[in-house]
Design a protein around this nucleic acid. Structure first.
Lengths: 139, 139
DNA sequence: ATTTTTGCTTTCATTTCGATAGCAAAAATA
DNA sequence: TATTTTTGCTATCGAAATGAAAGCAAAAAT
């Protein structure tokens, strides 16, 4: 894996990893919808192609935003879970959600998301707590 | 301009506009470094190609994140400024900065950014206030 | 009057994307 | 046990985006 970082700027470096059209949607599905398998993530509204999903999962794993595991009773199915690093993307996801909700209605019909009017840090806390609770069954 | 939105999800819709490797870096330069001309933005650490910068500025303008103006004593130079919609991206930019600062040091040497330890909403407020103050000279 | 700067556009090679098909191993079903 | 279905991918290939370099006209500076 060659060095793909354009500069030492933390914003640019973050964009170098998740600055594409798909990575943050994969994270969204994992973090908010608790999707865990290739199949589940494939079945999103936005129809990600398997070749892209495969490549993104590998990349996200290489930067330790996600990790791969299995459950004892299924030898085939991979379970993809967010690491701490990945879970810490929650504030970014929530800010994207809030910005789209407030600023894109002029150009696209935006879904109403329940609870988006609540206090920001509470939303972030809730999302992270819910994910961590779900994680316990794999610990 | 064809409809390029993949779904009604606010996160996906935001990604459809600024979900590429360059748009948020252009916004960063405008918002934080107060860059205003094609030349100034071209001279970033990350060396954006003029063809890409040109295309991005047009796109950001079409979605009303930025607007173009001129100063009376220079007929050539375009001045690019952030709109309200654009300025409202501040929380996203700050979260990218914080996440990169905390999570990417393992993979890239990340610049130390002054004042990033301060209270999040204070940082956001300061960045936005500074930008708005600068804007006054064009009002 | 000449040179330099600015804000682009054009060109074209390279890279990435993305739709579709395919496939082997495992799981489910008969 | 045999067959079918599901899962988690990989391969292929045309289309789109990226990016390096050159070019260029209008304006500004000298």
């Amino acid at each position: 894996m060659k060095n793909k970082f354009r500069s030492g700027c933390p914003i640019a470096s973050t964009l170098d990893i998740v600055g594409d059209k798909w990575s943050l949607l994969i994270i969204r599905d994992m973090l908010i919808k608790h999707k865990k398998t290739f199949k589940e993530i494939s079945d999103s509204d936005e129809k990600i192609a398997p070749s892209i999903l495969s490549a993104r999962l590998k990349l996200l794993e290489s930067y330790k935003l996600i990790f791969k595991t299995k459950v004892p009773d299924n030898k085939k199915e991979n379970i993809y879970l967010l690491t701490e690093k990945g879970i810490r993307l929650t504030p970014i996801i929530i800010e994207f959600s809030l910005w789209g909700d407030s600023n894109m209605r002029e150009f696209n019909e935006i879904d109403i998301i329940d609870g988006l009017k609540a206090d920001k840090s509470m939303i972030i806390g809730t999302v992270q707590n819910n994910y961590n609770s779900m994680l316990l069954q794999f610990a």
